[in-house]
Every structure is written in C-alpha cells, then in structure tokens.
C-alpha cells in the first residue's frame, strides 16, 4: 500500500448553478494531519462529503487506500471513519448501543473484538460516565465525543472530522487536540475548522479553500512566511496626531508604511510596516521621541494564521 491514503484528483461538484468545489486536487499521507480552512460556504464540507462517499463528485476521482471510491464504494468506505458536521447521532440510543451499532456496521463481526474496541473507546475518549445514558441527555461536549468515538470504533486508516472541536469548552478542545495528535501517527487525518490556532496546534499541513478553490497548501509555518509581509510595529499614544507628523516620521524612518491605524478615546494607534527592511524598534522610538508624544504602548505585533487567512480569502 502506498503512503498516500487519500488521493483526489480534479474534484468538482456543483449544486445547480453554484459551483461548490472547483477542480481541486489533494492527497493525504499516513501520519499527516491535514487542516481544512476556509470561510463558511467555501466548499470544505462538500469536499469532505465527497471524500467519505456521501456525495458523488460531478467530475474527478477519489482513491481511498488505492481503492477507487466511486467504483468500489463499499470496500473503500471500510477504511474511513467520519464525523459529520454537528456530530449527528441517534439521540434515543444509549452511547454503548450506538457505538456497537456503528461498530457492527463497520464490519467488526467478532463479538470479543467489538467488546474490546468498545472498552477502548470508553477509556480513550472518556465516555465511561455516560456509557449507558441515552445520547439525547448528553451535553454538547459528550455528544461530540460520541461522534469521535463512532468514527474511531473500527480503528480506521483514514479519519475525516468535520469541525471536531466546534462547541467544546477550552478544556475539551485541548483534550480533543491531544487525542488527534496521539492517534495521528498511523493514520491520515483530515479536519476542518474555523479555529486557526487549532491548525497550528495539530496540523502538519493546511489547505485554505475559498469559493471551491484551493488557495494555499502549506505547512502552517510556511503559510505565515509565504503570505505575510512579516511583523509590524504598533505604537499607541494618548496624543492627537495630525497627518503632517506621520509624514515626517515616514520620511525620516524610510519605512514603506507608516499610518494611523485607529483613533479611540484619546488614543491613536500608529502602525509601521515594511516588507523588505527589518524594522528597528530602537530607531523608531528615537524618532518618535522627537515629537514628545506620550507613548502608552509600543512593540512588535506578530503575524499569525488569522492574518494569513484573512489576507488570502479576502483577495478573492
């Protein structure tokens, strides 16, 4: 079996006139955690639905562990564990019944094996205390965990999780990310998310998608390096500054951008940026001192994935 567990080529899907996914290629290797980023309606869920065999692409091919998903869906689906958006589950079933139903449907026929997988899930995903409770009585966090457990019950090679941490509290998010990291070694994992720190925390690669097209496909660090000009300096003063001062500062410092970012109650924020030259905070402060401004705050602002995301998706 090749290293690539998911290979998708030229995937296209439209709903009427709306093109949800537009000719995208993607592959995921064993050991990779691929983060799928994009604004709402960008085509993340549609892509995931095609990868899991819920939707048929209009064009393109998908191979799951070297098996053609369209030609041999039953075989290919066996390798996938899937958490759909919102973690749907049969709310009238007890957690244990539900997981054993999915386990059996996923082909765990040996009752001993099923039992041991169930107890693994109870342990690994912390479901013991709700094990015999109907799913409808569970909190959102537990429901999400049940969703993860049903995706993992057959220990699949491929895990596709649509917004796995949505609606979880910070502790639960932390646990979920740890879980994903722990199991990622022997699996190919695809997660979609809105939360960019999550991508930095768990993903080995990120794909940014908007209007059905892939705009970026990089490691999280590369994304920041590639798409942002670097860092910038922010200075907040309690003086009111006119344009002339700004222009003077700009001409002496010789940085590309010096601008007033915002005025708030007796506060002005000045932003200084330059893609090419490294910013020197000392030099900037010396220059600003000449104007006898009251400085409340001064320092570097680090660029992060949020900025990358905004930049890439707003270029569209």
């Amino acid at each position: 079996m090749s290293l690539k567990l998911i290979t998708a080529k030229n995937l296209t899907k439209s709903f009427g006139d709306f093109i949800a996914v537009d000719n995208i290629d993607l592959d995921v290797k064993r050991g990779e955690v691929l983060g799928f980023l994009g604004p709402n309606g960008a085509g993340k869920s549609t892509t995931m639905k095609m990868l899991t065999g819920f939707l048929e692409p209009d064009k393109g091919t998908i191979e799951i562990c070297d098996i053609d998903l369209q030609k041999n869906p039953l075989k290919a689906k066996e390798f996938i564990g899937y958490l759909p958006e919102g973690a749907p589950a049969y709310s009238d079933m007890e957690v244990s019944d539900f997981l054993s139903f999915v386990g059996k449907m996923r082909g765990i026929e040996n009752s001993k094996l099923l039992k041991s997988r169930l107890s693994d899930m109870a342990e690994q995903i912390n479901l013991k205390e709700v094990w015999n409770r109907p799913i409808e009585t569970l909190s959102k966090g537990f429901k999400r965990r049940v969703g993860i457990a049903q995706a993992l019950i057959h220990d699949p090679d491929i895990l596709i999780l649509d917004e796995p941490t949505d609606g979880l509290d910070p502790n639960q998010k932390y646990e979920m990310r740890n879980l994903i990291k722990n199991i990622s070694q022997n699996k190919a994992i695809v997660i979609s998310t809105h939360i960019l720190e999550e991508v930095e925390a768990v993903c080995s690669r990120a794909i940014i998608i908007a209007d059905g097209k892939i705009l970026a496909n990089e490691t999280p660090e590369n994304l920041v390096n590639k798409f942002l000009e670097g860092d910038f300096v922010s200075i907040i003063t309690s003086n009111i500054i006119d344009k002339k001062i700004i222009n003077d500062i700009k001409s002496t410092l010789n940085y590309k951008t010096v601008k007033i970012e915002s005025h708030k109650k007796n506060q002005t924020q000045i932003l200084i940026k330059d893609e090419k030259n490294k910013l020197n905070l000392n030099k900037i402060m010396n220059e600003i001192k000449k104007y006898k401004l009251d400085i409340n705050e001064a320092g570097f602002l680090k660029s992060n994935l949020d900025d990358v995301f905004r930049k890439i998706t707003q270029q569209q």
């Binding site: 899991t52 819920f54 899937y82 749907p88 449907m105």
Partner: peptide, 14 residues
C-alpha cells in the same frame, strides 16, 4: 431531520 442520514450513507452499506 437529525442528519444521521449522513452517518448511514457513509457506512459501508448500499
């Protein structure tokens, strides 16, 4: 209504 249809159809069944 509950979205479980997505779960069912992505199981290895016809």
């Amino acid at each position: 209504r509950s979205g479980t249809i997505e779960l069912l159809i992505t199981l290895p069944v016809t």
